[in-house]
């Protein structure tokens, strides 16, 4: 895989980047612990390096299903009340969120 054995697989910077991609803010102690955890797990996952997968197709679906559709027929939608009943915050029929800055 990517890095030579013995060196660290993930750095705190990697973890910070992954956290920001995942939209999770991490406190420092959590950052340190997660970095350690991920390092251990990824180190274990490196076992897969031993496996020769040349000429092997990836499996995303275990069943050989294909061409599953629905007909273009209407089904009832939720009522607005039911749809908005789940909302954390709503305003005049809209879901309300903190201001999105473009």
């Amino acid at each position: 895989m990517i890095k030579t054995k013995g060196s660290k697989i993930v750095t705190q910077d990697d973890v910070r980047y992954i956290a920001s991609l995942s939209r999770i803010s991490l406190r420092d102690e959590e950052m340190a612990r997660l970095t350690r955890n991920l390092e251990d797990i990824l180190h274990y996952v490196r076992k897969l390096e031993e496996v020769d997968v040349r000429h092997i197709e990836p499996t995303s679906h275990v069943l050989p299903l294909k061409n599953v559709y629905r007909e273009d027929r209407m089904r009832p939608s939720l009522t607005r009340e039911d749809a908005l009943q789940i909302a954390v915050q709503q305003h005049e029929g809209f879901f309300k969120v903190p201001k999105v800055i473009q």
């Binding site: 749809a83 305003h91 005049e92 809209f94 879901f95 309300k96 969120v97 903190p98 201001k99």
Partner: peptide
């Protein structure tokens, strides 16, 4: 003029 945005799905 507010602190929020509104979403219509």
């Amino acid at each position: 003029g507010t602190n929020s945005s509104l979403v219509d799905y």
